[in-house]
């Protein structure tokens, strides 16, 4: 016997109904794949943009912050130090700007067909993994270069910490999805979000240890600093890959907690706003 679906107005906090998302997992895959296929259509350089964007950023930051401002990079060559942070940051900032607009961009689907609306921000965030993988390859090349380059004074070691890297990637995804859920659902109702996003990303960039190290922040304020989950993610990445400083345990605990809270609250907020998407968008 087939299932019965009840349609009625929902009130209060809606159940998360994540099972529905699982049923539609193939749609997540197809939307990711559509975004990737379409993204570099009619561009001259095609998929090389996925490499060029972070590399150009890294070169600029190296010249400005490593060279001119001469910021500390904890004994690691500045490009390596910076690029390691740009990887998860790229994933996060792209998720914010893409997922934030994703619902509105997929307006025609939302007003015509039923599917769990969560599919849209989820696929939008996950699509960033492909760019991440490409940029990760570039990081490997940069590390190899500095490992062998004479006079670079940098030796790469395989450490057990490297095995924890996937955990930090998951933390990055959790943070990205959590904030994306809030922003995308708000953007349906308040288009102000679209205008705020560029500033938000820019400010966020500077309160995250990307061009500098979190050790620049006085230890008295570390806890406050760690409320930004991307701090935990990036220091985690540096710790796992470059073996800089001691285990950033306090940072990680606080950042993980914040990320999880944002994700869960984001899920509930999204589900609560979801019912009016088709009418408001």
């Amino acid at each position: 016997m087939d299932s019965i679906i009840f349609l009625r107005p929902t009130r209060g906090l809606a159940a998360l109904n994540l099972r529905d998302l699982w049923v539609y997992r193939e749609l997540v895959y197809f939307l990711m794949w559509r975004d990737l296929k379409v993204r570099y259509k009619q561009t001259l350089l095609g998929a090389s943009w996925a490499i060029l964007q972070p590399v150009v950023q890294m070169v600029i930051f190296t010249l400005l912050f490593g060279g001119v401002a001469n910021l500390s990079s904890e004994g690691v060559p500045y490009p390596v130090f910076n690029f390691t942070a740009l990887l998860p940051w790229g994933l996060f900032s792209k998720a914010l700007s893409d997922a934030g607009r994703a619902l509105v961009n997929n307006r025609n689907m939302i007003t015509k067909v039923y599917f769990p609306r969560l599919v849209i921000p989820v696929s939008s965030v996950l699509a960033g993994l492909v760019d991440f993988a490409i940029a990760f390859g570039v990081l490997v090349l940069i590390i190899i270069y500095y490992h062998f380059a004479p006079g670079a004074n940098f030796d790469f070691h395989f450490t057990p910490a490297l095995l924890t890297l996937p955990l930090f990637l998951i933390l990055a995804l959790v943070s990205a999805l959590g904030f994306s859920l809030w922003l995308s659902a708000m953007n349906v109702i308040y288009r102000d979000v679209g205008h705020v996003l560029p500033f938000l990303t820019q400010i966020w960039f500077f309160i995250t240890p990307i061009v500098y190290s979190s050790s620049e922040i006085s230890s008295k304020w570390q806890w406050l600093y760690a409320l930004n989950p991307m701090t935990g993610v990036i220091e985690g990445f540096r710790w796992a890959i470059l073996g800089t400083q001691s285990t950033p345990a306090l940072l990680l605990i606080i950042s993980t907690l914040v990320a999880v809270v944002v994700l869960i609250s984001g899920l509930f907020y999204f589900r609560r706003m979801e019912r009016s998407f088709a009418d408001e968008i």
Partner: peptide, 17 residues
């Protein structure tokens, strides 16, 4: 077809739409 919710009242759907 579940694109939008009713404001009041309810419906039952038996099967895939």
């Amino acid at each position: 077809s579940r694109v939008t919710e009713p404001s009041t009242g309810q419906a039952e759907i038996h099967g895939r739409v």
